[in-house]
Design a binder for these strands. Structure first.
Lengths: 211, 211
DNA sequence: TTTTTTATGTTGTATTTGCAACTAAATTAG
DNA sequence: CTAATTTAGTTGCAAATACAACATAAAAAA
């Protein structure tokens, strides 16, 4: 399958042209910096050239929920224009290089109708499909009623991705608890129960499925 | 904001041309019919002309999870090609008219490079953004730890959509429980508690927020 | 290096939730 | 219109979970 990046199939030279046409440039961001928020009502979108970011929603109590992970080569935005009563914010998860430009440049197609533009749109659709798959995967997990079922579903997916019964968790247990929307200590306890029941073995972040 | 439909801005005549170019036609489906599954490895996508469908995942135990609602004018597919170890299926939620065609027709652009094609792609992106917003909304709710918080978040969103403290639930309580991934009776109980605590009033599906 | 911060791991307890098993109301089908 | 099916509404109880409060290990910063 291979990860689709927004600029796949577009040469350095063409990319420079696009950036010029979009009158934008790469900006470097420190970790935990707000790149874009719905406070800024511009119809912006951005591409992560290097690094990683989160789409975050802030609660009334200041609690934050990570709605999406945005990885290298992926884009965000397009949902900041209208009906944004949601406090949506894109924040860097690490030091990142990001390009911001107006959504219209992409959709409203420049006069030149260049080939790379078509390529860009195709990649964009591919990237969105990729993103939807990830979101569906998470929803599938989140709708499981017990933490045990969430874990088993998650382990299953990871094992299938790796094609093996042994794999290394790609995130911390703390983050996993957030990803599941459950209490961290309850998650740890459930993992212990799974071990007690002989369903899994763990060594730090290495998980072995015994079924 | 207004709902974006895939064929917005495309005339009847042009649409006929597209259908011909895509060598497809509208098919009528009865309720609860499988329109497309990842068993069929074709790179298909479909548009709901009339009706409604679900993107469903079937569990090993035969349990089903509704991952997405696909409404009139929206499309689905594009995620059925590769890495589909997930048992994803699109099923009609009611009697529906649907068009199926190969994804490549859209992305790989026909030789004519017609204007309506560009329009189609723009609408497609709009539709996907819309979809992502919905998914994010649901994830936001699902990650809330208690059923009470899920309900309050949900009520909040609905109230904001309607711009009023009073609104009518757009789905049954049974469906809401599935949407939340919680037990139905537990949901009913929590609604009662909310009433007891004077936070809401209900009359069948009419909800009034008292805060 | 040492200090500071963040992540892991554990446990008791009160609260929340799922599950089962109902009845009543409402909707759909015949 | 009546029967059949689906949805709403309740409740007891066992199981799961959130919360709080720790100790320790690991990682990051100074």
């Amino acid at each position: 399958m291979g990860k689709i990046c927004l600029f796949d199939g577009i040469s350095e030279g063409e990319l420079k042209k696009i950036f010029k046409c979009f009158s934008t440039q790469v900006i470097h961001y420190k970790k935990d910096t707000t790149v874009i928020s719905n406070m800024v009502k511009n119809n912006l979108m951005g591409v992560i050239i290097k690094g990683k970011a989160y789409l975050v929603k802030y609660d009334l109590n200041g609690e934050r929920t990570i709605l999406e992970n945005i990885y290298e080569g992926e884009f965000f935005g397009g949902m900041f224009q209208t009906d944004s009563f949601n406090e949506l914010v894109v924040v860097t998860a690490e030091e990142s290089d990001i390009v911001l430009f107006d959504f219209d440049y992409v959709t409203k197609k420049c006069s030149k109708n260049c080939l790379c533009h078509t390529m860009l749109i195709n990649n964009m659709i591919g990237s969105m499909v990729q993103n939807m798959k990830r979101q569906n995967e998470r929803i599938d997990i989140l709708t499981k009623k017990t933490t045990r079922d969430k874990l088993l579903e998650y382990f299953d997916t990871e094992a299938k991705k790796k094609g093996a019964k042994v794999f290394v968790m790609p995130m911390s247990y703390t983050d996993l608890a957030d990803y599941f929307g459950v209490d961290r200590s309850a998650l740890m306890r459930e993992i212990k129960y799974l071990k007690d029941d002989g369903l899994i073995e763990t060594n730090k972040k290495k998980i072995t499925l015994l079924y």
